[in-house]
């Protein structure tokens, strides 16, 4: 006796159950915990006390003097947020400027060579992030490869201080996230019809005009994907700024970690995490809005 056929809707629900469970327990659940913790009082040594308060949110933006109780804006927090945003935008731009020619180069190789180049791009992914970051450190530190080479060549007489600066964090993040930019760009350029370049030149466009009016608009999906893939993890970056930025060039990720560790203020950490999430969402919204407006203008 044949089983009655299941309705397609029910089947697809059944099939997506594992994914749904994973989402509920892996994403929605923790997020809910973070949301709840952000409205509780910090415990004495760690953890939380189950007492409702909005003190954590207040502490995100303002400082209260321990002795006289006067309130002043939390400039240090704003600096950290601003630095994170700035470094993430710069990282995205840097990876784009380096990644576009790279992706173009790979996409224009003969088909049998492309796999090798793509393989080389992905190799760093197989190495631990910590090790890669220490490798960068070895390159840029005062007695490192870069400074030694420049001194040997007589370009400079004293080592340039790069390590433990924002530049070091930028270099490190650009290096770490470059493949995330190159791969989607490659995928977009690979589909690009190169005969359109000739059509552009034939219609009196200069190289720059061909790039701006034909290439960039057509590969834009790759640019959008690459930018998001680089910007989002950059904003939450933790390991790279910690190692290359030293103690003073903290980013949001490090600051949040501090609250859950030495700071012993879990609610503040939770509130900061939610703000980071909000910044990412707003940034993405703006980005999507800007790029789609561009689209309708050209369409």
């Amino acid at each position: 006796m044949a089983a009655p056929p299941r309705s397609p809707a029910r089947t697809s629900w059944l099939l997506s159950t594992p994914a749904l469970l994973l989402l509920i327990f892996g994403a929605a659940g923790p997020l809910l915990i973070v949301l709840v913790y952000a409205f509780l009082e910090p415990g004495e040594y760690s953890g939380v006390v189950w007492q409702f308060t909005t003190e954590a949110w207040f502490r995100v933006f303002f400082e209260r003097d321990i002795f006289d109780g006067t309130v002043s804006p939390a400039d240090a927090h704003l600096t950290i947020f601003w630095r994170s945003l700035e470094l993430s935008v710069l990282t995205t731009l840097t990876t784009f400027v380096i990644g576009l020619p790279m992706a173009w180069f790979i996409a224009t190789r003969p088909a049998n060579q492309r796999a090798i180049w793509l393989f080389l791009i992905t190799i760093p992914f197989w190495t631990n992030l910590l090790i890669r970051t220490f490798a960068i450190m070895e390159v840029i530190r005062n007695q490192g490869i870069l400074n030694s080479l420049l001194i040997r060549l007589g370009v400079i007489s004293d080592p340039i201080q790069i390590l433990y600066t924002e530049t070091a964090v930028l270099i490190g993040m650009a290096y770490v996230y470059l493949p995330l930019m190159v791969l989607p760009l490659f995928a977009a350029i690979d589909r690009f019809d190169f005969r359109l370049l000739e059509a552009g030149y034939d219609l009196y466009a200069s190289r720059w005009q061909v790039l701006r009016r034909i290439v960039l608009p057509i590969v834009r999906p790759g640019i959008v994907a690459g930018s998001i893939l680089v910007f989002v993890p950059s904003l939450g970056a933790y390991v790279t700024p910690r190692i290359l930025g030293g103690g003073k060039n903290m980013m949001i990720g490090n600051f949040i970690e501090l609250q859950f560790g030495q700071g012993r203020n879990w609610p503040l950490g939770a509130a900061l995490s939610l703000i980071l999430l909000a910044i990412v969402l707003i940034a993405l919204l703006i980005y999507v809005r800007v790029t789609t407006r561009e689209d309708s203008r050209h369409g």
């Binding site: 005969r195 000739e198 059509a199 030149y201 034939d202 034909i214 608009p217 057509i218 050209h298």
Partner: peptide
């Protein structure tokens, strides 16, 4: 090519797909 007073109709047409 962009300085020659000629224009081409390509075999593949090569129309700009985003315009």
């Amino acid at each position: 090519p962009n300085r020659r007073p000629v224009n081409t109709v390509f075999q593949s047409y090569a129309l700009f797909p985003h315009m």
